[in-house]
């Protein structure tokens, strides 16, 4: 028996900047995880991922688990927590742009 589907978001890195991006409900790539589309359906997730992987301006699109939070999707694994925040040794990355601060 296959495992039940857990909610997911589609994430990737932007081709030019290299930074972390997420696919939103409107199909636009956004910089903040809480603005991403949380997908509850396996077939829809696969279909959206296939489309995302065809986008030439993004690199390495994949599905990752996320939980429904007060202001939008939240990470369930520490790797995704670091990706949405930035490194812990300097205040660089998303934590300085505010993409993380709105959560």
């Amino acid at each position: 028996m296959s495992r039940p589907f857990t909610p997911k978001v589609i994430t990737a890195n932007a081709l030019l900047q290299g930074d972390v991006i997420y696919l939103s409900e409107s199909g636009i790539w956004v910089r903040a995880l809480h603005e991403a589309a949380l997908i509850f359906d396996a077939a829809r997730a696969e279909a959206l991922l296939t489309e995302a992987q065809k986008d030439g301006m993004v690199v390495g699109a994949y599905l990752t688990d996320a939980a429904e939070g007060k202001h939008g999707p939240e990470p369930t694994h520490f790797r995704e927590e670091f990706r949405r925040t930035g490194p812990s040794n300097y205040p660089h990355g998303k934590q300085e742009t505010g993409a993380r601060a709105n959560v």
Partner: peptide
């Protein structure tokens, strides 16, 4: 950047020149 090369085609070329894509950049 202009789309003539896919990421699959470009990746080995950038790696030959020391360019990785990491977590944040």
């Amino acid at each position: 950047i202009d789309g003539s090369l896919s990421e699959e085609e470009f990746r080995p070329l950038r790696l030959m020149n020391g360019l990785y894509l990491q977590l944040h950049a």
